[in-house]
Design a protein around this nucleic acid. Structure first.
Lengths: 195, 195
DNA sequence: CCTACCGATCGGTAGG
DNA sequence: CCTACCGATCGGTAGG
């Protein structure tokens, strides 16, 4: 039951802020607009939060956390590299699709964070990068992937396709994250060229 | 000779605005900051421009134009689909790489444009989409690409990789747009899987 | 959660 | 291109 009436006020603020920040941008959203959408006055927000930047930090942190929780458990699993790639792309795209607003804020506004929060996000980016590089390396070593692949370029190719979904995915459309992940993975694994 | 001292003032304003908008975001950049970097007072800017939004419109329009000029001439050329794909990706990535600031503004701030400018950008996006879908369709019909490809998904795969370069390309790095385009195209065409 | 208010800063203009 | 200024709005606070 999304948006149940008993949802804590802080959750409501987080959700509305995610939507407004993603639609208009962080700096272009005023605290009065945010308060208005929640049916309260501007100053009343500060009974629940510490400040505008805290909202941004929360949104970005939660997004990072969701990516971590989705991908990290895959590291230990003993799957063939092609299956693991398909599964990782599916999970990655699911996080984006299920959190289109926070994902947009995550990709657009992380540069505007305070130095500490900025460093944390940069650290997360590196973690995800490493995850995909490891996946590619393992695939090469196990003989599932071509031996002449450049690990860095390959992981960038994968990251491009899964991250870019935040720009075009529509929840009301016909494509599910499963469809997208399977379609992209199949093309990436087998190539476009006719045999 | 970039940034020659005789560069028209309007060009200088355009360049500095692109950089500031891409680094801090459109709304977070004040006209006084912009003026300061150009060695003038805030009000003096309005001797050269009509307003802040005009700057954004100019940056986005010029970026759209560069994509158009790079890709559109390829439409008529009678190249094999794989060669045409490689060439299109190279040109697309070159535009991004040569205009990292305006490309970032283009991808991040187009939502904040006035309705008319917004519609123009949306129209451009559709044009580029059509370009890549045509390229894929031609490749299927000529037998160069697999017949079971989904045209929409395939063009989204391509667009993801070329557009996402705005987030990670570094002009001071070792990879050239040629390297990136050739590397991505080869992987997309032949696939990651070992034979 | 509201009312009333703070200093700061915003984009933009007038007149030179 | 500068000085001086405009009304509007910003994030945030005090006191209740």
């Amino acid at each position: 039951m999304p948006d149940s009436p008993t949802k804590p006020r802080r959750e409501q603020i987080h959700d509305v802020a995610s939507r407004l920040f993603s639609e208009r941008g962080y700096h272009a959203t005023s605290m009065r607009e945010l308060a208005g959408e929640l049916g309260m006055q501007g100053g009343s927000l500060y009974a629940h939060i510490n400040g505008k930047e805290d909202l941004l930090v929360q949104i970005v942190n939660r997004a990072s956390q969701q990516f971590d929780e989705a991908l990290f458990p895959l590291r230990g699993q003993n799957l063939p590299a092609d299956d693991k790639l398909r599964e990782a792309m599916h999970r990655h795209i699911m996080v984006v699709a299920d959190n289109m607003d926070s994902a947009t804020v995550f990709f657009h506004e992380w540069k505007h964070l305070s130095p500490e929060a900025y460093a944390r996000v940069t650290g997360w980016r590196d973690t995800i990068d490493r995850f995909y590089r490891e996946l590619v390396s393992e695939g090469i070593q196990s003989g599932v992937f071509r031996p002449d692949l450049d690990v860095k370029m390959t992981s960038l190719l994968i990251l491009s396709t899964v991250n870019w979904t935040y720009t075009w995915f529509r929840p009301e459309g016909t494509l599910t994250p499963r469809d997208i992940a399977d379609g992209f993975a199949e093309m990436i694994l087998s190539g476009l060229r006719a045999r």
